[in-house]
Amino acid sequence: MKVSVSRSGGIAGIRVTWEVQVDEQPDARSWRELLDALPWDETEESAPEPDRYVYRIRCAPHEVVLPEPQVAGPWKDLVDRVRAVNEGR
């Protein structure tokens, strides 16, 4: 199972993507529990805000696009975990 997080926007408009193969992680079970607990179908659409980041989070069959202010709680936990794996922490 692959999780992909892309962040775009901001002042420079640069896109950055982080990915993790959940099944290759030593704590794969906790990853799956977090992914299963996310409110995939409960996100709200909102208008883009200038110079703010937008996050696209994918884990088949799910995909959400969240403006930066909505990346909180379990969404922030997921983004932080995916980034940490990619940054070697």
Rank of each mutant, 00 (worst) to 15 (best):
S4D: 04
R81F: 04
E42G: 13
D36E: 14
A12I: 05
R81W: 15
G9E: 02
I57K: 02
I14K: 12
E45M: 10
P61R: 07
V71D: 02
I14F: 10
E44Q: 14
A60Q: 14
P74T: 09
A47S: 10
D80T: 10
M1E: 08
P50N: 08
P69L: 00
G9H: 11
R52D: 11
A72S: 07
I57E: 01
A84S: 13
D27N: 15
A37V: 01
V85P: 01
D80L: 05
Q25Y: 11
D23N: 15
A60M: 07
E49W: 13
H62S: 13
V22C: 09
A28Q: 15
Y55T: 04
E87Y: 13
S6M: 08
P67R: 12
L35H: 03
E45Q: 14
V79R: 01
C59P: 02
V5S: 00
L35W: 05
S30E: 15
G9Y: 09
P39E: 03
G9K: 02
G10D: 02
R89Q: 07
S46G: 11
R58H: 09
S6E: 13
C59Q: 14
P39Y: 05
E68T: 03
A72T: 14
V82S: 06
D27K: 12
L66W: 09
T17Q: 13
L35A: 00
I14C: 01
G10N: 01
P74Q: 08
P39T: 01
S30P: 00
R29N: 09
R56F: 02
A84Y: 13
W75T: 01
S30I: 00
V82E: 04
V85C: 07
I14M: 06
D27Y: 15
R32E: 07
Y53Q: 07
P48N: 02
T17N: 08
E49M: 07
E19F: 05
V3K: 03
R89W: 15
W40D: 00
L34F: 11
L38I: 04
P61T: 03
P67A: 06
E19I: 02
A37S: 15
P61F: 12
E19Y: 08
V5F: 08
P69Y: 11
L66V: 04
P48D: 09
V5P: 03
R81E: 06
E63I: 04
W18T: 01
Q21Y: 12
V71C: 04
D27A: 03
D80K: 06
R32L: 08
W31F: 08
Q25F: 09
W31Y: 13
R7L: 07
L78E: 08
W31Q: 02
V5G: 01
R15K: 14
Q21M: 07
E87M: 05
W75I: 04
D23P: 09
S6T: 15
L34Y: 10
D23E: 15
Q70M: 10
V65D: 00
R15Y: 03
W75L: 05
L38V: 02
R52Q: 15
L35V: 06
Q25W: 10
G10Y: 13
A72Q: 12
G73S: 13
D77R: 13
V71H: 04
S46I: 05
P74R: 07
S6Q: 13
Q25A: 14
R81L: 05
I57V: 13
S4I: 15
V64S: 04
L38A: 06
I11D: 08
W18E: 12
P39I: 01
R52Y: 14
R7C: 03
R83E: 08
